[in-house]
Simulated assay, not measured.
Amino acid sequence: MTIWEMLAVFAAGIGAGTINTIVGSGTLITFPVLLATGLPPVTATVSNALGLIPGSISGAIGYRAELAGQRRRILRLGIAAAIGGLGGAVLLLLLPSTAFETIVPVLVALALVLVILQPRISRAVQRRRELRETESTQTGGPLLFTALLLASVYGGYFTAAQGIIYLSLMGMLLDDTLQRLNAVKNVLAAIVNSIAALFFLFVAHFDWTAVVLIAVGSTIGGQIGATVGRRLPPTVLRGIILVVGTLAIVQLLLR
């Protein structure tokens, strides 16, 4: 890499760490930059996954106040994230590079629809619980576990808009504030990235320069994102999700 390419990758890491902590889709910033430096798609994906681990952890630490009282939820959903992340990493090396990318825009679009409808769906679910006089589950039950498992398979493979999918699923099936769910999303993303990266370390080729630059940049971005994101009201946060998700779909379709 030239010095200018290194600066571009570092800047992309900061941007990705920031946007990942707030909502997700940071990969849509770093991935094109890595490709522009001449890295092959799979090498860029693996290097990106390794580099974003510190940023995910940084963002989760920044949201530590919102994680209070969610230990049981995180432990249960974390298992789904770990299994799915490993499965996605394996598929990345086994399947053609375009296999999952063809359905990515559809997945992101579906997630955005769920985000838009989330308040209405949540109210409907709450009314149904009240009619049945049942307590809301703190973990989302088997449905959320399965849905996050599948989302994590996708996350281990490509990661773009993974956070948006997580937030849409949890917002629909859990009775909690969007900020607290965003904190859980950051932990789950860190788990998926870490599991996939550990697998890649032993079986895949990656670029150490790109990894280090993204790691440092995303760590800084994670703190920026936590500072900005936790101050946003639910309506604004949901609006950012929709804007980022729409841009993600456009970029993926134009690739």
Rank of each mutant, 00 (worst) to 15 (best):
F206G: 08
V187W: 05
L213I: 12
P234F: 07
R132G: 00
V115G: 03
L198I: 14
A197H: 13
T227L: 13
G140C: 05
V212G: 08
G156S: 07
A210M: 09
Y157N: 07
V153K: 04
V216A: 14
A124I: 03
G225D: 10
R230G: 01
N193Q: 13
L178R: 10
L178F: 09
F199K: 04
L213H: 13
S194F: 15
A210D: 03
V244W: 05
S168W: 09
T137H: 09
V125M: 12
V192A: 09
R128P: 00
V203T: 15
E130I: 08
Q118W: 03
I191M: 09
L242Q: 12
I121Y: 08
A210Y: 09
L198Y: 04
S168V: 05
R120P: 01
E133L: 13
L198Q: 03
L117N: 00
I195L: 12
F158H: 01
A190K: 11
V203Q: 11
L144N: 02
Y157K: 06
N182E: 03
Q138E: 15
A210F: 07
K185D: 06
I195W: 06
L174V: 06
M172N: 08
G225E: 11
T139M: 04
G239N: 13
G155C: 09
N186P: 05
L114R: 02
V125C: 02
L237I: 09
A210H: 08
R132N: 09
D207E: 13
Q223N: 05
E133V: 00
T134N: 00
A190C: 07
L173E: 10
G221N: 10
Y166K: 09
R123G: 01
S194G: 14
T209E: 11
T159V: 14
Y157D: 04
A196Y: 07
F206K: 06
R231L: 12
R128F: 00
E135H: 12
V153L: 10
L201E: 06
L150R: 00
L117D: 03
P119E: 13
T219F: 15
G222V: 04
R123A: 07
L117Y: 05
A160F: 01
Q162M: 14
V212D: 08
I165R: 09
A190D: 06
L237E: 10
V216F: 13
T137R: 11
L173S: 11
V211W: 11
I164T: 07
A161D: 08
G140H: 05
L213V: 12
I164F: 02
L237Q: 14
A151H: 02
Y154R: 11
V236S: 12
G171S: 11
L237V: 09
I164W: 03
D176A: 14
G221S: 11
S122Q: 14
A210V: 08
I165D: 06
P119F: 02
G222L: 03
L149E: 03
L150G: 01
A215R: 10
L131K: 11
L149H: 02
V216Y: 05
A210G: 10
D207C: 07
S136K: 12
A151F: 02
Q162C: 05
A226M: 06
V192T: 14
A189Y: 05
Q138T: 13
L117F: 08
V153C: 04
F206V: 05
I214A: 05
V211P: 14
A160Q: 10
L169C: 08
P119M: 04
